[in-house]
Design a protein around this nucleic acid. Structure first.
Lengths: 184, 184
DNA sequence: AGAAACATGTAACCAGTTACATGATTAC
DNA sequence: GTAATCATGTAACTGGTTACATGTTTCT
């Protein structure tokens, strides 16, 4: 259900094509949600069938017709109603941690390499998020919409920072383990 | 694929029934992976078909037969081989953040209530994790298996702490927003 | 007496992933 | 000329969720 709501949070500001939504997901939503264009096209078709969005078809020479979706009054009401309902934390599933748990079966070096790769990936994401944060002109005087977007960015920053710290801590532990092994 | 590996990390230590695996998931794996018993039963059947696990059927009076699964040599090799292969960070999908983003459509009080609920849930989880940590006798001298389990617990602690901090930060922002609204 | 724990399974459904298909325009 | 961007879609598959089904033993 949440994919539909994530789409609605974008459409409520501006009409968009599936293709544009897909790009906007990658840019502004990816800290906490991601969807492939295929998922988005499918979801938009469903939402249209339910009367949550409506579509304007714009013919284009050569290319497939543009289908510009906008939210309906019903879609808007549904979104606002959903906001007031309690929701659970999403389930996390981290492949890396499955490897950590089983990691005692192999020499520490194997995990160390893998964790270093992850640390690098988290560092890169964090750098990107900080760059976005720096581009916000006057952080003390955002309008409500901008402020809410900023709160999600802060969560992305917190999330990547946590991973970086955990990677550092874990690398330290595994490296000292490696040294002990070599002394024997 | 990862569910099979998560199951394998348990079976590699001790044979287990699907039912027991399900309980152990809730107790020791839930910081980073969760699975319903239905998923586990289905996955075990698949793994057996692939020769990764084997099963001993123990008849019980009245109740359904116990099916005790253990890992095969092939399953063990597959797990160790998988450990050395790079894997991506799992995708996160947080419903709460979808609500935060759309939250400018409703009065701050609605989100504040929801975030307080989440803060409470994260606090409870964190308390549980700290309690587990305190029960570890000699943290400086764990064997490798125990150490690796502990590293995953540390990740659970870091994750819940991050959420707590973000909830606090966000509540502060939204509350001052609420005060401004009331002054007008 | 009733709830919780024990123990497994089928079936339907929903959501996410991957592969394939088409074909024009624009930038290097 | 080649890659990237624009623009949408079908189809198959995999993994996660939920409902239903069965029936005993143990604890409160």
């Amino acid at each position: 259900m949440s994919l539909a709501h994530a789409i609605a949070t974008i459409l409520i500001k501006n009409p968009r094509t599936g293709y544009e939504l897909s790009k906007e997901f990658n840019e502004k939503v990816s800290y906490y949600w991601q969807a492939t264009s295929q998922q988005i096209y499918r979801e938009l078709a469903r939402m249209e069938a339910q009367g949550l969005v409506e579509v304007e078809v714009i013919p284009q020479g050569g290319r497939p017709d543009k289908k510009v979706y906008s939210i309906t009054e019903q879609g808007r009401k549904e979104l606002i109603q959903w906001l007031a309902q309690p929701s659970e934390s999403s389930a996390t599933r981290e492949e890396l941690l499955v490897k950590i748990k089983a990691g005692f079966l192999v020499p520490p070096a194997i995990l160390i390499k893998e964790i270093e790769r992850h640390r690098q990936a988290h560092q890169t994401k964090l750098d990107t998020y900080y760059a976005i944060e720096r581009q916000i002109p006057d952080r003390e005087h955002l309008n409500r919409e901008e402020l809410h977007l900023y709160l999600t960015l802060r969560c992305g920053i917190a999330y990547e920072t946590m991973w970086l710290n955990w990677c550092e801590e874990t690398l330290t532990t595994l490296r000292s383990l490696e040294e002990e092994d070599q002394q024997k």
